[in-house]
Amino acid sequence: MAYLLLLALVYSFAIALLFFQFAIPKKSTALATFGVGFALLAIGYAAQIVLGFELNEGAARFFYLARWMLAIAWFGHGLLLSVVPDHKLITWAGRGLVLASFFGLGLVALTQITNAEDWFQPASTIYSQIGDLLATNRPTRWLAILLNLYGFVALVGMAIYMLLQRQTGSRAFLIILGAILMANPLVWSPSVESPAFYALELIAPILLFLGTLKFLQVDRPRQKTKRRRAAA
């Protein structure tokens, strides 16, 4: 059922394009941040697909950087920006996230690949093998943990905040569930590829997309009706 990864890639890539398309005319940082989140997720899926075929150093590095280190952080920051826009602290956090992302890029680029040809199994999930595949040093690992924690807390925290504010109901649950599903393979790395693993890989970004749709006010631009034109 590896095709579900490709389907997840198609949806993530398309949603990322959509967010960027909406972000540019609105000059919305929140939308662009979510676009980056989905783009990182798409890169992660693409790397997983490549690694499902053979051991590829570039794909392994891209997977670690995009999916393992950055994706959740950018999603979380996107939600922070959309719930609490123009807050000074969050603006600084955003700058910090950009800096941390570039720092992470440098760290991952410098990380050595272990002699994995002997044991790497394309048929197993990359989540269970990436730890041994990349000889990550302590700063790299800690940066990944820090960024994921930041993103996860932001996603879940903001969803709960919105729930308490009664601004949204089911969508907050979708975000919480999406965040848990996205973080799940990073914590409990599945070693065996099962139908459930592939299904969750597809469902996680869709849940996040559905959950954040309303917050980000990505509404369809309506064509003017006669009545609206007359009112105008």
């Binding site: 198609v10 369809r220 309506r222 009706t225």
Partner: peptide, 17 residues
Amino acid sequence: WLLPPFILDTAFSPQKD
């Protein structure tokens, strides 16, 4: 594979009134 582009295109294309 045909459906994802059509789904997203329909969801975000201008709404006909």
